[in-house]
Simulated assay, not measured.
Amino acid sequence: MKKLYIFFTAGCIGALVNSLVVWQCGQLGINNMLGVAIAPNLTSGWLYQRLVWGGLWGLLFVLPFLRSRLLYKGLVLSLLPTAVQLFVVFPYSAGKGMAGLELGLLTPALVLFFNAVWGLVTAISIRIAR
Results as ranks from 00 to 15, higher is better:
115 N>K: 04
20 L>F: 13
27 Q>L: 12
79 L>T: 15
7 F>G: 01
130 R>L: 11
56 L>A: 08
45 G>V: 00
25 C>H: 13
90 F>L: 08
77 L>Q: 09
91 P>E: 00
129 A>I: 03
9 T>E: 09
89 V>S: 10
110 L>M: 11
98 M>A: 10
44 S>M: 09
81 P>H: 08
84 V>D: 07
65 F>Y: 08
82 T>N: 04
62 V>H: 07
76 V>L: 15
36 V>F: 13
85 Q>E: 07
128 I>M: 13
3 K>G: 06
122 T>A: 15
53 W>T: 14
13 I>G: 05
80 L>A: 11
79 L>K: 02
2 K>G: 05
73 K>Q: 12
44 S>Y: 06
129 A>M: 12
104 G>A: 09
15 A>M: 10
38 I>N: 08
105 L>G: 12
67 R>F: 04
93 S>C: 05
55 G>C: 06
21 V>K: 00
102 E>D: 14
90 F>G: 01
32 N>R: 14
18 N>L: 15
89 V>I: 14
66 L>N: 01
24 Q>W: 12
109 A>T: 12
46 W>L: 09
51 L>K: 10
15 A>S: 14
67 R>Q: 13
110 L>S: 06
5 Y>G: 15
100 G>E: 05
48 Y>K: 06
51 L>I: 15
105 L>R: 12
38 I>H: 00
42 L>W: 09
111 V>W: 09
87 F>P: 01
106 L>W: 14
38 I>Y: 04
116 A>L: 02
97 G>M: 10
91 P>V: 01
87 F>H: 08
88 V>E: 00
92 Y>M: 05
125 S>Y: 04
61 F>C: 05
70 L>N: 00
6 I>D: 11
47 L>W: 01
90 F>R: 01
85 Q>M: 15
84 V>G: 00
32 N>A: 13
93 S>H: 11
95 G>E: 07
56 L>W: 02
71 L>W: 13
98 M>N: 09
10 A>I: 08
70 L>D: 03
33 M>G: 05
96 K>N: 11
39 A>Q: 14
91 P>L: 00
21 V>N: 01
120 L>P: 00
21 V>C: 03
55 G>I: 10
16 L>T: 05
45 G>Y: 06
42 L>D: 04
1 M>C: 10
63 L>K: 03
115 N>W: 13
106 L>P: 08
25 C>K: 08
113 F>G: 09
77 L>M: 04
76 V>D: 06
10 A>C: 08
110 L>E: 10
36 V>E: 11
47 L>G: 01
125 S>K: 08
52 V>G: 01
62 V>R: 04
31 N>Q: 12
63 L>I: 14
21 V>H: 00
